[in-house]
Computed example of a mutant assay.
Amino acid sequence: MTNILEALEWLLTADAWSGPGGLWVRSLEHLGYTLIALGISAVIALPLGLAIGHTRKGRGIAIVATGAARALPTLGLLTLVALFTGIGLTAPMVALVVLAAPSVLAGAYAGVESVNQATVDAARAQGMSGWQVLTRVEIPLGLPLILSGLRLAALQIIATATLAAYVGAGGLGRQLFLGLQTYDYSVMLGASLVVILLAILVDAAFGLTQRLLRRVPGLAGPGTAPGTGTRSRRVRANMTAN
């Protein structure tokens, strides 16, 4: 309890937030790392996941691959990459992308698979090409689950990006390691609370975006899109498990 009070007291001081090494700068660095890693993960995993969901091929391989990626210890991977690239941002980015890509991939193919097959067949019967079915039917109707994958990946990155400081990068991990080295547990706990607050804010932003998208015609949310009943709940459960 004393450490919590000391951490809160430290967070309320101007010195904790000001300067090039203050919490404002470190929080912005942390968010920047999150956006970069999430963007790279999306560029790699989203097209692959959409293709798997659309063609219904390769799902088994994707599950095995994402399971293997999730089993990798992030700190060990970061250290291994850092041995070849040196200190800096490269090693943390590689580790964070490997961590986040499985969630993005699973969200993408689960979102497309959740669309009612009858809706897809009706679109094809109207003369739509495979690309048109994907972009005009499957992605819009599966968007809530696709965003859920990105949302989960973002939270994973925020929680793990503190390890970037382990190889000389910035972010809120700097305060954590500084507190560890100096046995200043109030600084460690304070920085941890900021990471938690950052995760809550990002999660709230994704939640608000998903709620707003459900109000847009043609973008169905869970429970409103065709096929979002028992089948979609099962698909979402598989996405989380895999």
Rank of each mutant, 00 (worst) to 15 (best):
63 I>Y: 06
220 A>I: 00
231 R>G: 07
70 R>K: 15
75 L>E: 06
77 L>V: 04
156 Q>V: 06
116 N>S: 14
199 A>L: 00
192 S>G: 11
211 R>W: 12
110 A>G: 15
185 Y>H: 07
162 T>Q: 00
185 Y>A: 05
155 L>D: 05
121 D>Y: 06
180 L>Q: 14
73 P>W: 07
123 A>T: 10
228 T>N: 14
76 G>C: 05
237 A>T: 11
92 P>L: 08
211 R>Y: 08
227 G>P: 14
184 D>G: 01
221 G>M: 08
117 Q>P: 02
86 G>V: 13
31 L>G: 10
91 A>I: 15
201 L>I: 13
19 G>N: 05
16 A>G: 00
194 V>Q: 01
211 R>T: 13
228 T>Y: 10
84 F>I: 15
7 A>K: 01
196 I>D: 11
191 A>H: 02
34 T>A: 12
215 R>F: 01
192 S>Y: 05
206 F>M: 07
115 V>I: 08
191 A>V: 04
22 G>A: 08
100 A>H: 07
131 W>E: 10
149 G>Y: 12
4 I>N: 03
214 R>Y: 06
41 S>A: 15
148 S>F: 02
18 S>V: 04
38 L>H: 04
97 V>K: 09
189 L>N: 03
187 V>F: 09
194 V>W: 01
68 A>W: 10
123 A>K: 04
55 T>E: 13
231 R>N: 09
112 V>Q: 14
69 A>F: 08
30 H>N: 02
135 T>P: 00
179 G>R: 01
45 A>P: 03
8 L>A: 06
40 I>G: 02
168 G>C: 03
